[in-house]
């Protein structure tokens, strides 16, 4: 059992949860993730470690409330418990110091991009962050991202924050204006990461992506999270989740991520738990 120390909503559908998890906090590095199981009936769901406090013995995750487990997690109060928490899993991101980096986050991906940007910032890198959201009311972590970046550009799909653009447009504009990046890190929906890679390839800028396939165990024993990288099968949970973006077969990843979308939708309709319940 793992205790929830703190919980707050970052917007209507994104929740930040701080867990009491000293063993994980002691080891966690940027780029790593945890797997949680909310209750006895629950699934094992992976979430990136968005922050950790080694002294307090806590870790922070940020989740979008999209299904059974994330909704039930969001409905828990501070001081309550979830059944299981395991981590840190995956390989830590390999980060270099003293370089110029563009960190691109898409939606919830910003929760994963932020700890990487912070780590790079702390390692003396010059960090520009481009964060994309569907609309103004979905923006998360603006102050946090601002604090660790030299430049923060927030784009919205509908222009409701005054900057209607795709993250790729913003990145392209910076590069065309002569900004020289040593590295691009892109984290968000696979379709966004795919288009960032197609763009950066034109300029030959090394691009790292953090993949989000379906996972069960997260320790390399099932291959549910397998992705094709450079023509070879890799397990994202142990070989990743970070990979060279040019090598990733994004179309395959997108197809595999839809494998159970029918079940999830049906379950949401069936699930009486959330009918008429305002989880916020």
């Amino acid at each position: 059992m793992t205790r929830i120390v703190k919980k707050r909503f970052l917007n209507d559908s994104i929740v930040e949860v701080v867990f009491d998890a000293p063993d994980i906090a002691k080891k966690a590095m940027p780029g790593q993730f945890i797997i949680f199981r909310v209750d006895e009936e629950g699934e094992r769901i992976p979430l990136t470690i968005a922050g950790y406090d080694r002294e307090m013995g806590t870790i922070t995750v940020i989740a979008q409330t999209v299904g059974y487990s994330t909704k039930k997690l969001a409905a828990k109060e501070e001081g309550e418990y979830i059944s299981d928490l395991v981590g840190p899993l995956g390989r830590p991101s390999e980060l270099e110091s003293n370089i110029k980096v563009a960190v691109i986050g898409g939606g919830l991906g910003c929760a994963i991009a932020y700890p990487q940007a912070k780590a790079l910032h702390d390692m003396n890198c010059e960090v520009d962050i481009i964060a994309g959201f569907r609309s103004n009311d979905l923006i998360i972590l603006e102050d946090e991202m601002k604090a660790v970046s030299d430049k923060l550009i927030i784009c919205t799909d509908d222009g409701s924050n005054g900057n209607k653009a795709l993250v790729t447009d913003a990145l392209k504009a910076l590069i065309e204006n002569g900004v020289k990046y040593d590295l691009v890190i892109a984290i968000g929906p696979p379709i966004m990461m795919k288009f960032v890679c197609l763009l950066t390839k034109q300029y030959n800028i090394k691009t790292i992506v953090s993949l989000n396939p379906i996972m069960i165990d997260g320790t390399g024993m099932c291959g549910g999270c397998r992705v094709t990288v450079g023509g070879k099968i890799k397990f994202a949970c142990v070989d990743g989740p970070d990979f060279d973006g040019y090598e990733v077969d994004f179309d395959e990843l997108m197809r595999r991520n839809r494998a159970y979308s029918g079940d999830e939708k049906k379950r949401d309709e069936d699930c009486k738990l959330f009918q008429g319940v305002d989880i916020k």
Binding site: D23, I24, K27, D84, L85, V86, G87, P88, L89, T219
Partner: peptide, 9 residues
Amino acid sequence: TNAVIGRTF
């Protein structure tokens, strides 16, 4: 449980 040797310890 939930203790991965090689990661957690």
